[in-house]
Design a protein around this nucleic acid. Sequence first.
DNA 1: AAAAAGTTTAACCAAATGGTTAACAAAAGT
DNA 2: ACTTTTGTTAACCATTTGGTTAAACTTTTT
Lengths: 204, 204
Amino acid sequence: MNKTKDTTTEFEILNAAKRIFQHKGMAGARMQEIADEAGINKAMLHYYYRSKQLLFEAVFKKAFSMIAPQLNDILNSDLSICEKIRDFSNNYISFVIKHPYLPNFIIQELNRSPEFIQKLLAEKHFPNIEKFRKQVDNKIAEGIIRPIKAEQLFINIMALNIFPFIGAPLLKGLTNVDDKTYKKLMIERKTEVADFIINSIKLT
Amino acid sequence: MNKTKDTTTEFEILNAAKRIFQHKGMAGARMQEIADEAGINKAMLHYYYRSKQLLFEAVFKKAFSMIAPQLNDILNSDLSICEKIRDFSNNYISFVIKHPYLPNFIIQELNRSPEFIQKLLAEKHFPNIEKFRKQVDNKIAEGIIRPIKAEQLFINIMALNIFPFIGAPLLKGLTNVDDKTYKKLMIERKTEVADFIINSIKLT
DNA sequence: AAAAAGTTTAACCAAATGGTTAACAAAAGT
DNA sequence: ACTTTTGTTAACCATTTGGTTAAACTTTTT
């Protein structure tokens, strides 16, 4: 009853909304612009999603669900720390090159309404640092990596991978490189970031 | 003619605008809200700054002028690389703990209108990477630090210092720490970040 | 084929928003 | 003293914005 053409509209709305919201944020996005982007009447947005807020939340949750599994990889997989770092840096950077507005969108809207993270935390597969902390503490005890708080290491991994995309306009300006060269730098970072981290923590 | 009480209003507007814009961004901020925050009539905003856009630009430029000198410290001072990294991490993190909304505001608005960076680039004391690049390349040639592109090292320094504040809501959620503990982590980072970077690049 | 349910549109609406105006008050200049 | 300039306010305005409605069209059900 809703698997043929019907779903198309609902899906197109979500996609159009994704593009507009990710570019302009909740406050900057206009319902009319989303409707135009989807090529449909504005009333349809309300027909399928009731309000701007609910449409936004649908977009946000979808965006977050694309990132969360990657965070789970580093927090909950059974690989060694170094393998995790290499895998994550490689996968995440490849992913974001394809979806350049995603991280900024998520970070930005979480800053605008930090209470939103509580809704996400409540969901079942929300990534959690506990396993990673134990792993790091063990490896430190074994003398394999330098002493460092698991939280700090995790923050460093996130920072080195995520920030170059969020801060791209600023970094492009400061390093004085054009878009093409900057993209090359990002591709280099797929391995560069992991090397940088591992050089810092590895003892052997 | 405008140094006594007159300037106070203009100054109060700028301060109120700073608070509102930094919280809500250009799109989310309301002129009425800024006027209320400043405790004055909305017409005064236009009397002193003509339009929302111009008021915003005044706020943005002021914000950027508070950050730029710190970037210059790492790019153009005469200290050694390690000293620069230690100084910058320490100073920058201390600074941002006092002005927690600043980096997010700047990064966010640069993403929203990347052409804005061109206006900033044109200004005389805009930080530039050239000197830093030569310094890094020399130290690599001398065998003092590991081979790394100056741009990548610079991006790493920025990422490790700036991201923990921009990504705070997400990182607090993922690491499952409360605000107070997170702030402690940030204070630790004044030295932690520098150690982490130097461990990674130092050869001797 | 007729009724029912679901989808789409154009026109409309009230509230919010950036900006203006005209009148008034306070300083400053003469 | 009084004129001019500067600062301030309340009321107002045009446009934009999120959201609604009623009617039309399409698909599904019976």
